[in-house]
Nucleic acid binder design. Sequence first.
RNA 1: CGGGGUGUGGCGCAGUCCGGUUAGCGCGCCUGCUUUGGGAGCAGGAGGUCGGGAGUUCAAAUCUCCCCACCCCGACCA
Length: 488
Amino acid sequence: MDIELKHIAKRSENLSDWYTDVILKGELADYAPVRGCMVYREYGYAIWERVKKMLGQRIIDAGHQDVYYPLFIPRSLLMKEAEHIEGFSPEVAWVTIGGGEKLAEPLAVRPTSEVIIGTMWAKWIGSYRDLPVLQNQWANVVRWEKATRPFLRTLEFLWQEGHTAHRTEDEARKETSLILDVYREFAVEDLALAVLAGQKSESEKFAGAVETYAIEGMMPDGKALQCGTSHFLGQNFAKAFDIRFLDDDNTEKLVWTTSWGVSHRIIGGMIMQHGDDSGLILPPKAAPVQVVVVPILYDETKAQVLEAADKLAKLLRSQSAFGEPLRVHADLDETTTPGFKFSKWELKGVPLRLEIGPKDLEKSQATAVARDNRSKSALAFEPGAGTFDSEGLAGMLSGVQERLRERASQELASRLFETSSFDEFKEIVAGKGFAVAAWDGAEETEAAVKEATSATVRVLKKGVTSGNVACVYSGRPAQYIAYWGQSY
RNA sequence: CGGGGUGUGGCGCAGUCCGGUUAGCGCGCCUGCUUUGGGAGCAGGAGGUCGGGAGUUCAAAUCUCCCCACCCCGACCA
């Protein structure tokens, strides 16, 4: 069946316009009267709440607890870690006036919370018995970016930032990779994204970190999107904030810390990776509405159909999917046509639609339509007896989740191109996807490649042990195989 | 921060070059009737400090100057 589209750009033709259209017209978010800031509308915020719920649970399951630190950071604290302030100062917003008076010390609106957390830890941590500290915070942060886009880059953004302190280097390194796994599993299992996980190059690492790891997604326009980062901070912040503990050998030591974050940007990634020309396609685990019930109303049968639709919605709400109560919306509005509702909920990406009309009532069924491939199934439904084919429904929901994940995974695989030729490399990163290519590990090589192609090392794939692999750019012996790409 | 562009009912635009009575159009919105299994039709209706300020003029959405905001493309970043 051909679906004529009147109101949004085609994803297949103009990803950028499509992206903006689905966010605005799908009522996820709107531009705020502040440059670079967005308003989360009900539906968009509900998606963020899903992220919080699913990722939050994974973080808690990995042993962390939620906390909350202040929005403001005194200037003197921010200045303590040299690399950190150097990296962040260009994008910090400052409060200089409060209560009508100029402040003695300006307050930074947090761009991230390492320094205020480090300051408090210095006070709280005294003994090896106080370690590890495993904290997570859901918060807003502000970074004064030059160019912004809804979800992908905004001045103020929502995220979670985890911060941990450990007794040993080994333990902190394990935490860093544990979190990278948590992020990868969350992206793949819950959001049905396909990502590469690995270490960042020196130039791309977090300001103040020893090592940064990331998950990177590949968008349909061939650009990479960093969807989450996990940093091994070594003892850099421990030194700057004097976070010491007395170990069981009665010597004073510095703690080893990590930090890690996933922002609302991952919603932008999910939007781009899963949509089609009709709008969003949300993976059922992440969808605020998993099933929308649409009654087909005619004058003669309106009463019976509305009653059945209402009954069906109630029945569905008492069921569960993926271990949680099923999230159901019944669109009983009598002033719009079924076709309008189909389009509306498809634009919003609801994974499953249940149509119920006179023909369905006659056959004791509801017609289920999957959002991703529009496959239809009749699911048994007896309004009188209150019975419904819930297994059939659950099967369709997990079908959508699985197909999206599979589609994303194949899409990523089809956008990985190994090459040893710099000419090929240039073509690959100019819109095809990731170039998998050898790198001599030199910062000036990465800088030169960026200058020539605007691509950077997104993550390192692996180290090269033998000396016979040549860097794709310099021809010198390679240290790494890296995934290169242009990024958002 | 460099280059380009745009500000006109809720949204998208025309009108601006070449000043001239009541500022148009499409969508959306409201009311009524007919409709309703893929974005319904007809009829009627509501809604405007033309981004802001100053100037030129008998007369400014239109010309001049200043300011503000936003968007796109680059450089910087979750």
